[in-house]
Every structure is written in structure tokens, then in C-alpha cells.
Write a protein that binds this DNA or RNA. Structure first.
Lengths: 229, 229
DNA sequence: AATAAGGAAATTGTCGACAATATAGTCGTA
DNA sequence: TACGACTATATTGTCGACAATTTCCTTATT
């Protein structure tokens, strides 16, 4: 339990593990397009492996909502919809709100200082490259809070399920917004609440932070859809 | 997505599916004891199947937190701890709170009436057999609310992950409490809030309902541990 | 020309065997 | 006797082949 999502290619022993990571990235980046059928023989030969470990990997991709499988028919990459994105945001509001509350109750001063250092780092990066912050930086922050909750199931659900879904939608709907400075401020507020061990406030702020983000995305999607019509 | 947990043995085509269901029940009921090592050859021959579909099933059991696997070492049934049980309850408070809110916003009058009918059913069953209500009946109610949320990820997480964990702990820690009548009243309050489409109230009541349940279980575990010392 | 039935091709599900790794046991030495 | 290295055994990971099912194409009939 409590796997850390491997940004830098971590030491993973088994072929199924490695292929699973590769496929996760391939799906997130759209190399394997959303909605497309997955052919086991084709994929296996493409990666130079047998169907055994590939199927093991597919099984995990299904568990983290990146593909859907039907018995005797096969696997398809999930399709991205506005509705599903909203659903994910709602779950994040709930789950990460809880995470923030628990983090406020559990995190040591040392942990909080590390969080602070991360924010300081982000502050500089924002000036240079907003897009970085919007992608990896934001993720780092949220993941740090979730880890701070010390709830193994929460950590697991976030890093195994939600993490990849968030990346998938960020990557493919990839819209850069003007919310970055505002989001950064909100991050600061959340850290303050955690430092004061004010669980209720941390929960409220985190929930609202993600809710704001959701509303922003919903608005942008509306506009975007309006344009393409 | 959105699998319904199969109480009555549903039509499942593939061997891996069937074996997965059997193993889920075997683990929940303790036929395969908590913490025990799982030998693939032994299990495969016991169920008269090959290791292929068995491994597929194990992969899913890992995804729903019933076993833990280490590469090149093997799988063990998870061990049940007070800490993990509390963690699960905290997540339920959060997630099912959200579910109740969404159910209040989304459920049609017809759905609410069906919920009511379920409660009416439960009212009679309580008189006859409290233990039934505590196990399956309670589960029915909570699952109905989650379905009412209309959030596919929520439905999926509940019926694939949390469902089995809840059953596991209920079965193995299996303690009958005096909370049944109180829990029934709380269920009624939640349905009322949903009927009035009062999302905030439904969320609050559901969260508190599960929180009460958690506190009750914590207390009972303390007493139980005190006895065995 | 459109639809249905039948068969051919391809894909998924399952199996048994082999390779790689970990575990258990044995022997030797301090 | 206790500890460590080495060997043997057992278990997990991977592979290729076969069986079962679906999908696609061809053909025949109305």
C-alpha cells in the first residue's frame, strides 16, 4: 500500500510493473488515444513482451480507471467527458478536504516546514514558468497534503486512482488559466491552517480550493465548447 | 464501471471473474485467514484452475485492498487492525457524505419512494432479526444512497473497494451492538433530508451517522481489547 | 438492394512448461 | 553452540500454444 507515483522512472522489478507505468504515461499523453481499442497482440509485440504481463498491466489500468474492459471483447481507453471530470472534482473536494483536516491534526512542525519550503520553491517557479506550476507543482502540493493525512487508504486512492485521472484530464484538456496566482494564494492559506493545526479550517479551505478550480474548469469548458460550435 | 456487488451469484462469464468473487467471499468469511500467505499453485489446484486466471483474480483482490502483493515474493491476505478500520470509517464519512448530498440533489421522487420502501422493509426485519439488519440491510441502504449520487466513480469506489472492506471487518470483528435502533432512526432522518432535496443536511446527517458508528465501534474495540488483556 | 445466415479470421481466455527469484535447509567454521 | 555461506527446493514471473468467443466478410435469399 501507499505507493508513491513514480515521476522519475523508479526501480520496478517486474515487467508487468514497467509496462503498466509506460502505458499509464502513454494514455495520459494521448500516445494511445482516448477511446481507442487496445489490441493485446499488437501492444505486446510493440513493447516486445508476451501477453501475460501485458494483461496483468491492463488489469491495473482498469483498476485506476484508465481503461475499460469487457469480457471476451477487450479493452478500450476511457473517453474523456465533462461529466466525468466534474465527478472527479467532486470526489477530490471531499477526499482532499478530509486529507487536509487529518494533515492539520497529524503533521509535525518539521513536515509543515517542508511544505512551506515547497511553496517557496513554487513561488519562484511561477515567475519563470506558470505551466510547470499548473501541472507538476500543483500535483506535488496536493500529494504532500494527502501523504500528511497519514491515512493509508486515502494515500493509496489518491496516488493509484485519482493521480492518473487528474493527469489525464490536465494533459488532454490542457488549458492554462489565469487562476495560477490565485491558486497559489489558496495553497498558502491551507498551509497556514495546517500549521495552526486547525483541521476544520484546513478542510474548508482545501474543499473550496478544489471547488474553485472545478468551477473555473467548468467555465472554461463552456467557453471552449461554445467556440467549437 | 459501476459494477453492482453481486450478492446473488450473478452471471459472470470468465473464470477469473468467478474465482475473484469466490476468493472475495472466502477472505471476508475468514476461510482464507487474515494475514495468511497465498500460494498460487495450492489455490489453483484447490479450485481446479490454472494459475493464469488465478493471478488475474489476485490482481483485482489487490486493487480492492483484500490482499497485498510483493514482487517475486507473493500475496498475503491483509491483516485487520483497529487503525485501518478507523481509516476506512473516516473515508466513508467523507465519501458517503458527498453521496448523500448528491443523492438529495439528484434522486427522483420515485427513487426516494423506493428508498422509503426499503426502510419499511427494514423496520419489520429489525423486530425479527437484528443481526440481518446490521449486516446486509445496512449495506443495502448505504449502497442505495451511493447509487443515488449518480457519480460513477463514487459508485465504483464504493462497490469495488469499500464494500468488501466493510464486509471483511463486519464479519471478522463481528460485534453486535445496541446501536441498531438508533441507526435505523438516523437512516430515516437521512431519507427525509433527501426527500426534501436538502443536500447540505443529508450530507451532514450521513457524515454524522457514520461518525457515530465509528465511535461506537472504537468504544467496543477498546472494551474488547481490555477484556482480552 | 437490403437483410439474414453461414463461415473465416482475428481476438480474448486459459493452460502447461520454462526461467528467474526467493526461501529453506545443510554443512562447515569460528 | 551460533553464525554464515552454499546448495537444493519451492514459488513467482514469463512465455508460447491451444481453446473459446467475438467480429468481420462473404454469400444467398427475398
Amino acid at each position: 500500500m501507499s505507493e508513491i507515483p513514480q515521476n522519475e522512472p523508479n526501480v520496478v522489478s517486474t515487467i508487468a510493473d514497467k509496462i503498466c507505468n509506460k502505458l499509464q504515461n502513454a494514455i495520459v499523453e494521448g500516445i494511445i488515444p482516448a477511446g481507442s481499442k487496445i489490441s493485446e497482440p499488437a501492444l505486446a509485440s510493440e513493447y516486445g513482451i508476451s501477453r501475460g504481463p501485458l494483461r496483468e498491466a491492463l488489469s491495473r489500468l482498469e483498476a485506476c480507471y484508465l481503461i475499460e474492459r469487457k469480457p471476451n471483447v477487450g479493452a478500450r481507453v476511457v473517453t474523456l467527458t465533462r461529466e466525468h471530470l466534474v465527478e472527479i472534482y467532486l470526489i477530490r473536494e471531499s477526499l482532499e478536504g478530509l486529507a487536509a483536516r487529518l494533515a492539520a491534526e497529524n503533521m509535525s512542525d518539521k513536515d509543515v516546514n517542508e511544505l512551506d519550503a515547497l511553496l517557496e520553491e513554487h513561488k519562484h517557479q511561477i515567475v519563470q514558468d506558470q505551466s510547470y506550476y499548473q501541472k507538476e507543482g500543483d500535483m506535488d502540493f496536493h500529494f504532500r497534503i494527502v501523504k500528511g493525512s497519514n491515512n493509508s487508504y486515502l494515500i493509496d486512492m489518491f496516488s493509484n486512482d485519482l493521480y492518473h485521472l487528474i493527469r489525464l484530464y490536465r494533459y488532454q484538456f490542457g488549458m492554462v488559466s489565469k487562476r495560477v496566482p490565485r491558486a497559489f494564494v489558496e495553497h498558502g492559506q491551507i498551509v497556514d491552517a495546517i500549521r495552526q493545526h486547525d483541521g476544520e479550517l484546513a478542510q474548508f479551505l482545501m474543499s473550496r480550493h478544489i471547488s474553485n478550480s472545478r468551477k473555473n474548469v467548468e467555465k472554461m469548458l463552456d467557453e471552449h465548447l461554445a467556440i467549437s460550435d
